[in-house]
C-alpha cells in the first residue's frame, strides 16, 4: 500500500472563484507539518479521464453554476468508477455551488434545470439575492470552522446528513444545517481557502486517510496553528459582536 497521499486538484482554472487554490496549498502545508508525503496533481482538462485508483482526495473548489453542466457531461461517463471511489471511503471535497454536480438538480433563476450526477440527494435553487456573510459551524466532534460564504443558491439536503451545525450564518438555507457529508464525500458552503483558515479540518481529513491507508504519521506532536487559532478567536469575537443576518 502506498505511503503517500495523492490529491487531485480538479479543474483548478475552471473552479476558481474565491482564492480557493489556497485549499490545495493548505493540504500540502498540513501534510508537511505532519511529515507525510502528499502529492498534488492538477487535472486541468475538464474532459480528462480520472485515475480514481490513484487518488485519495478529489478537491473540487467553488466555481460558477454555469460550469456545472460541462462538469457533469464529462464526469457522467466515469460515474461507475466515481461511485466505486466513494464506496471505498475515499475523499471528495466540494465547496459552494460546484457541489451541484454531485446532487440531483439545480434550478436557475430563469427556471432552467441543471441535472447533477445524483450521487447525493441534494437540490440547489439559485437565489435572486446574494448572501455574503461569515459562517461559523461545528462538526459532530466539536471541531470549530469559521469562514465566509457567498451564497448564490439555497440547498436542500433532503435525507442526507449535514456536515455540521451552524452557530452563526446562513448555512444551507438559513436553517441550522451546514453542508453535507456521506461516507467521505464532504460538501461545504464555507468558501475561499477554508482549509487555510481551518487547518485542523484538513488535518482531520488527512489523519482519516492515513488510517484508511495504514500510513504512519511521522509527527504526532501538536502542530503549530498559532496564527490560525488567533484568527479563529478574532473571527468568533467579530461574529459575537454583530447581530445582523439576512435570511
Amino acid at each position: 500500500m502506498s505511503s503517500e497521499i495523492n490529491l487531485a486538484w480538479m479543474y483548478p482554472d475552471i473552479l476558481n472563484l474565491h482564492g480557493e487554490r489556497g485549499n490545495a496549498q493548505a493540504f500540502k502545508h498540513v501534510a508537511d507539518l505532519l511529515r507525510i508525503e502528499l502529492n498534488i496533481d492538477r487535472i486541468d482538462d475538464i474532459e480528462a479521464k480520472i485515475d480514481f485508483e490513484k487518488y485519495d482526495i478529489l478537491l473540487f473548489n467553488c466555481g460558477e453554476l454555469k460550469v456545472v453542466p460541462t462538469m457533469v457531461k464529462y464526469l457522467k461517463p466515469q460515474l461507475k468508477k466515481l461511485k466505486k471511489y466513494i464506496k471505498e471511503n475515499k475523499t471528495i471535497i466540494t465547496t459552494g455551488t460546484t457541489s451541484a454536480f454531485l446532487g440531483k438538480k439545480a434550478t436557475r433563476i430563469d427556471g432552467k434545470e441543471i441535472e447533477g450526477l445524483g450521487i447525493l440527494d441534494l437540490e440547489f435553487k439559485e437565489r435572486e439575492l446574494v448572501i455574503g456573510d461569515d459562517i461559523y459551524f461545528e462538526l459532530d466532534d466539536g471541531t470549530e470552522i469559521t469562514g465566509s460564504q457567498i451564497q448564490m443558491v439555497d440547498v436542500n439536503i433532503n435525507n442526507e446528513k449535514p456536515l455540521g451545525t451552524v452557530k452563526y450564518g446562513y448555512g444551507n438555507n438559513g436553517n441550522e444545517e451546514e453542508g453535507c457529508i456521506k461516507n467521505n464525500v464532504i460538501f461545504t458552503n464555507c468558501l475561499g481557502p477554508v482549509f487555510v483558515k481551518n487547518p485542523w479540518f484538513a488535518e482531520k481529513i488527512i489523519r482519516q486517510i492515513c488510517e484508511l491507508k495504514g500510513i504512519e504519521i511521522q509527527n504526532n506532536g501538536e502542530l503549530d496553528y498559532e496564527i490560525e487559532k488567533e484568527s479563529l478567536k478574532a473571527t468568533k469575537e467579530f461574529i459575537e459582536n454583530k447581530n445582523n443576518i439576512i435570511k
Binding site: 482564492g19 455574503g132 461569515d134 465566509s148 475561499g192 481557502p193
Partner: peptide, 19 residues
C-alpha cells in the same frame, strides 16, 4: 479590514489567495 460596505459586515479574506 473587515468588509463593512453594507450589512452584514463580514470578514471575507478570500481575495488574499487570489493574489
Amino acid at each position: 479590514y473587515e468588509i463593512k460596505d453594507f450589512p452584514p459586515a463580514y470578514t471575507n479574506t478570500f481575495y488574499f489567495f487570489d493574489c
